[in-house]
């Protein structure tokens, strides 16, 4: 079904690049990766096309995919001590990672779904802009605000993009995987794992009892 929708979008929205993201779990919910430039047009088509009518955007999720260290091994012929030898060279590169917004669409009129759309930012630091789909589905309004708050994705075209759960003066984005929580240790009688580590710093190695 997703392949059919994909080719239909490609036929109707000119110049859009789509990619099916497969899902290996038994749920079989595959998703469509859409490009940011044409996202609004794709969303409008999905909502308004008479036989699709995805009029209901149920769920908007932010996901953080931090950059991974990519280790590449390459065999290079090199002159070692005057003799040509094959030497393995290891190159380590850091991928930029990305933030992702996932939209679950259903149709209340046709009672079908879900179609899952994904959008990705270019990286996690300075290019974190995505087009807001709130003009198409108002249900995304609070959920996109939440993603802005907790992940730091900036939704261009959102009518009221403010922090929603954290307070206005808060910095950083707590749902990111590299978020470091502030050191506000309180005495804990039964510390474990990270809390134990933290308590050691505060109680100078004495396990509090």
């Amino acid at each position: 079904m997703l392949e059919a929708i994909k080719s239909e979008i490609e036929a109707n929205v000119s110049g859009c690049r789509l990619e099916v993201v497969p899902n290996s779990s038994p749920s079989g919910q595959h998703s469509l990766l859409i490009d940011c430039e044409r996202a609004l047009a794709v969303a409008r088509f999905l909502r308004d096309a008479a036989h699709l009518r995805f009029d209901y955007c149920s769920n908007v999720t932010g996901i953080d995919w931090p950059g991974k260290e990519i280790v590449e091994k390459e065999k290079i012929k090199k002159l070692v001590d005057g003799v040509e030898q094959e030497v393995e060279e290891v190159r380590k590169t850091q991928s930029a990672g990305h933030l992702e917004a996932v939209y679950h669409l259903y149709s209340m009129e046709k009672k079908h779904g879900p179609v899952i759309l994904r959008m990705r930012t270019k990286n996690r630091s300075d290019q974190t802009h995505l087009p807001s789909l709130t003009p198409i589905w108002r249900s995304a309004e609070f959920q996109e605000r939440e993603i802005f708050d907790l992940y730091g994705i900036v939704f261009d075209g959102h009518p009221d993009l403010r922090r929603i759960l954290m307070w206005d003066g808060f910095e950083d984005h707590p749902m990111r995987r590299d978020y470091v929580e502030p050191d506000d240790y309180e005495y804990e009688p039964t510390p474990h794992d990270e809390v134990l580590e933290k308590s050691k710093q505060h109680t100078h190695g004495v396990r509090a009892r």
Binding site: S25, P26, S27, Q29, H104
Partner: peptide
């Protein structure tokens, strides 16, 4: 430990 993948249940 479920296998890698994703699911939306409602």
């Amino acid at each position: 430990r479920p296998k890698a993948g994703e699911a939306y249940g409602r």
